[in-house]
Computed example of a mutant assay.
Amino acid sequence: MIPSQSTKIIYLGDGTTTSFPFNFKYSAGDDVKVAIYEVATDTTTVLERDYFVDTNANIVKYPGYPPGEEPALSDQPEPLPSGYKLVIYRETPITQEVDLGRKYPLSTLEKMVDKAILISQELAEKLGRAFIVEKGSDLTPRELVDELKENTAQAISSASAAAISENNAGNSATAAYNSAVDAADSKDRAEDILADIEAAAETVGGVATVYDPNKQYEKANQVMVENGDTYRCIEPSFGEYPPTSGKWVLTATGKKDTFERDEDDDLVPCRFAQASDLWSIDNDEDICPRHIA
């Protein structure tokens, strides 16, 4: 006769208690199992050692050992602390080993018991494929399923958010790379412009030399051609005539007034006169038209 349906009992750890009684029926002492449930992580650890089932008093001792087999205190675990539960439960092998013989009605009775065992074995197989809450957990199976669904939805949402973040991070990295390339290009352009300015600063305002077609000119060099116009070199040049070359830029136009009046109001060459488009000085230092000079 087994009047109670209880198959387990649970105790909360308090850091001091080491004896835990139980009152459910069992076939053999080995059928009484002990596990520790951690509330914070919802995990159960089935004990293989450090507990003792007293079948005379129906008490589980944890930590506990058969009389005379106690290890040193340093090798024993501490009493179960708070935040943990001690679960004492029954796990009976689903077998039927009693043979009632062949006399009537014993064979009929034995078939009844055998059928119950067959059903129990089938149920055990089904349970092996089912969701089961941890021993010691306060969750119901329905709550466990709902929790799993919620966790799955959160995991999918988090994965989606992570993918979006990763994509945004990739875009940001690409943008940062492009910005770095643009910045490097801008830096190079700025350095080139600065070099031009510095080179020009060394020559602009100085005296321009007469253009020599047999001379190598570098950037920012200044020359004057025969009509008095001055040019600045913007690219290294050798033999390129400034007025017709893209390697030179016009910086000043020569004087067109090659001649001026002196104190007596006579026409004389300008003090800093340059050749004019129309007039020049011949070998006798006379003023004459340029085309016959």
Rank of each mutant, 00 (worst) to 15 (best):
S237Q: 10
S4A: 06
K8T: 01
K103M: 05
F259W: 09
N178T: 12
V53M: 02
R189I: 13
L139V: 12
A153M: 06
L250P: 11
E150T: 13
D282L: 01
A201R: 11
V204D: 12
W248N: 04
F22A: 10
D114P: 01
E125M: 07
L109Y: 12
P105N: 02
V145F: 08
K135A: 10
E198N: 15
V204R: 13
D192C: 01
F272K: 13
L118Q: 11
F272E: 14
K115C: 03
K256E: 14
S4V: 02
I164Q: 13
D99Y: 12
S6W: 00
E38T: 10
A124F: 05
N23P: 00
S276T: 10
C270A: 15
A28V: 12
Q154M: 09
T253Q: 14
F20C: 07
T152K: 12
E235N: 09
E48H: 10
D212V: 02
R49L: 06
D138P: 07
V87P: 03
E191T: 12
D14I: 00
L144T: 02
V207G: 05
G68L: 01
L118D: 11
E78D: 14
Q216G: 09
E143C: 05
Y241M: 09
A184D: 07
V32I: 15
G136A: 02
G228N: 04
Y11Q: 09
D277I: 03
T44C: 09
P236T: 13
E235Y: 06
Y217N: 12
I10S: 10
R129V: 03
G136K: 00
T230E: 15
L86S: 13
Q222L: 08
R290G: 08
P242M: 04
N214R: 00
V87M: 02
V133E: 11
A176L: 11
A169V: 01
A183Q: 13
A273R: 12
L80N: 03
A28P: 05
N167R: 07
S276G: 15
D282H: 04
G206S: 07
F24S: 05
P71L: 04
T7C: 04
K187E: 08
M224D: 01
R189A: 13
E226F: 06
G228V: 07
T17F: 02
P243L: 00
I2W: 09
S186Y: 01
